[in-house]
Design a protein around this nucleic acid. Structure first.
Lengths: 249, 249
DNA sequence: TCTCATCCTGTAGATTTCCTGAGAAACGTC
DNA sequence: GACGTTTCTCAGGAAATCTACAGGATGAGA
C-alpha cells in the first residue's frame, strides 16, 4: 500500500465475486487491473494488454490455466503468472509452478497473501536495484524474501497467520485498522467466524513482538517499547514510538 | 465542512427518513447529493450520475446492495461504496466490505460517523496528492488516520465519543452548534436519552483539551488558552483565539 | 442585588470492549 | 500412529466508556 508499484495485472477467474474481490483489492493496492472471465478471453486480453503479471485461476470453464499459460508464452508474452488453485488439486499439477518466476496460492486465499505474492514475484522479476524485501518499523524488521522477523536484532519465530497480520499492520504503519479490515485482508475470504480472533492474534503478536527483552548498556534486562497500539473502539495500529521531546521547545 | 470537497454522492436507502437524513446532512457538508430508493433505481441513477461515492443500504426491497455494486462495476462505474448494514448481519456478510476503498457503517449510525467515513474514503481514493488526514484548530490537531489528538504537541487520549464530538466541533470551527445539533450528529440517530449528555462530554473534552499545561520560555507551567467556548442559551463552539493584543491576564 | 434558568462537573452504576489463558480441533511431520 | 504446532473458540476478569443524576457555579435579566 505504501509504495506505489505501477504495474499492470490481468486477473482471470470465472467467478464474478472472486474476480471483483481481486480487482478491487489490487486496484486499491496501486496496480492497473484488467480482467477476463474465460481462458480464451484471457489469451486475447493478455496478448493485447502485455501485463507485468497475470493472476490466473487454473480451473476455467473452457481452457485450463496451464494451457492458457502455454498459449500466451507461445504468443510471446512472458509475464509471470500467479496461479489460483483449489486446495485439493494434486501436488503434481502444482509442481513446477514455482519455477520460472511463477507461483501459486490456494483457494480460498487471503488478500494479504495474494498481494504479498504478487509483490514478491514482481520484485524478483524486475531485478533492478530497488527491490527491497525489507519492511521496517522502528527496530522491528521483516524480510519478505526470507520471512525472517527480527526485533532489536533478536530473531522472532511467527506462525503464518501471525506473520500475515504483522505484515498487514506494518504495511499500514501509523494508520488505525479496524478488526473488520484486518479480517478482510488477513483471513481467507470465506472465513465465517468471529472478529474476536483478531484479538487473539494481536495478543500472540504482542507477546512475541513487544515482549522481547534486550540488555541495555549496563547489561540489565529491559523490555522494548511496545509498537502495537490499541485504539479502543476503533482498532489497532503499529507505529514507531514518537521522538521523546525532552527538549523545552 | 471547512474545506469544500466538491464530490457527488448517491444515497440509496428505501426508508425515506434515513434517506432524507443522509441527504440533508451530506448536502450540508458540501456534497452534491442524489438519491434512490430501490436497487434498480440506484443502478440507473448511478450510471447516469457517475458519482464519486455511493452510500448504499445492503438491505433493499428488490436487489440487494452487493448485487447493485456488482452491476454498477460491470457498467464501468468504479466509485467506492459505503455500505449501510444492520448490526446483526455484520458477522455473515460483512466479509470483504472493507476491500478496495469500500467501507461500511452499521445502523443505527451517527451522521458524524458517516461523514467521517466518506471523507476518509475520498481521501484515500482520490490518489495521493493532497490527501491530508490532519484537521487543525490553533495548536490543536487531530489525525484522521492514526486517530491521534495533540494539543500544543502533547498527545491526548480521547474516548470514541469524545473524539467524534471534537471532530464535529473542529469541522465547524467558528460556528456555534446547539446541543440538539450536536446530539443529532455525534450520537446515533435512534438515541433516546437526554441532551444533557452533551454537557458532560463537553466537560470531558475541556478537561482534556483545554486543561493541558505547557511550559513557557522560563520553564513555568502555564495553561493553554481555552478553545471550546460556551454560548449561553445557544450552544458550543470551537475557535482559534483571536490575536491577543495586550493580554491582561 | 436577587432570582431563575442554564451550565458545569463529580459520583456511581451499567455497559461495552478488550485481554488472555485454557482447551479442542485441525494440520503437518517424523 | 504419535507428537508438536497452529488455528480457533470460549469465557472470566479487568479496564475503559457511557449514561444518569444531582448539587454547586455561573450568567442574564429584573
Amino acid at each position: 500500500m505504501s509504495q506505489s508499484i505501477e504495474a499492470t495485472i490481468v486477473v482471470v477467474d470465472d467467478e464474478p465475486s472472486i474476480r471483483e474481490l481481486l480487482m478491487a483489492s489490487l486496484h486499491f493496492s496501486g496496480f492497473e487491473v484488467v480482467s477476463a472471465a474465460t481462458g480464451s478471453e484471457a489469451i486475447e486480453v493478455i496478448e493485447k494488454t502485455k501485463p507485468d503479471l497475470v493472476v490466473l485461476d487454473v480451473m476455467l470453464p473452457d481452457i485450463d490455466g496451464f494451457t492458457v499459460t502455454r498459449r500466451i508464452r507461445q504468443g510471446g508474452v512472458d509475464a509471470p503468472v500467479l496461479f489460483l488453485t483449489a486446495r485439493d488439486d494434486t501436488q503434481d499439477k502444482v509442481m513446477g509452478l514455482t519455477v520460472g518466476g511463477d507461483d501459486y496460492v490456494t483457494k480460498p486465499f487471503s488478500l494479504e497473501e495474494v498481494v504479498a505474492r504478487i509483490r514478491a514475484i514482481l520484485r524478483r522479476t524486475r531485478q533492478e536495484g530497488e527491490a527491497d524485501p525489507i519492511i521496517k518499523v522502528a527496530d522491528l524488521e521483516i524480510n519478505e524474501d526470507s520471512h525472517d522477523v527480527t526485533r532489536a536484532g533478536e530473531i522472532i519465530d511467527l506462525s503464518p497467520t501471525e506473520y500475515k497480520l504483522l505484515r498487514y499492520l506494518m504495511d499500514n504503519e501509523g494508520r488505525v485498522l479496524s478488526k473488520a479490515q484486518i479480517l478482510d485482508h488477513v483471513w481467507q475470504y470465506d472465513w465465517g467466524g468471529d472478529a474476536a480472533i483478531v484479538e487473539s492474534y494481536i495478543s500472540y503478536l504482542r507477546k512475541k513482538i513487544d515482549g522481547v527483552e534486550v540488555r541495555d548498556e549496563n547489561g540489565a534486562k529491559k523490555k522494548v517499547t511496545p509498537l502495537i497500539q490499541t485504539k479502543r473502539g476503533i482498532g489497532y495500529m503499529i507505529r514507531a514510538p514518537r521522538e521523546e521531546q525532552g527538549s523545552t521547545d
